[in-house]
């Protein structure tokens, strides 16, 4: 086994997903099969190979720090599940 049910439950916690016991069991089997398949990458010796994060060579991209109009607040807030005045409303934190 590449991955256990306990590990899947821990990963679900990291990913902020409330999974049912059935889902944990199903994902354990499926992730195990996928991880066994991707193990073939270990056939390759990559010791001296640089990792690629970005295919087109470019450095940091900067621009002038100019004032511009933002998004219309009313339209943005119209998509929020909970609002109050000009703010997003969430369950009590402290």
């Amino acid at each position: 086994m590449k991955i256990t049910g306990k590990e899947v439950a821990y990963v679900a916690h990291l990913a902020r997903l409330a999974l049912s016991d059935e889902e944990i069991e199903q994902f354990t089997g499926q992730l195990d099969a996928i991880l066994a398949y991707v193990d073939k990458l270990n056939e390759l010796d990559t010791e001296d190979v640089e990792p690629t994060a970005h295919v087109i060579p470019m450095g940091n991209v900067v621009r002038e720090d100019a004032v511009d109009t933002g998004l219309p607040i009313e339209e943005v807030l119209a998509n929020a599940p909970g609002t109050q005045d000009r703010f997003f409303r969430v369950p009590r934190i402290i």
């Binding site: 991707v38 990458l41 640089e50 994060a53």
Partner: peptide, 11 residues
């Protein structure tokens, strides 16, 4: 990291 290295080989 391993996958990013193999990506280099594919490129």
């Amino acid at each position: 990291r391993k996958a990013q290295q193999v990506r280099t080989l594919i490129m």
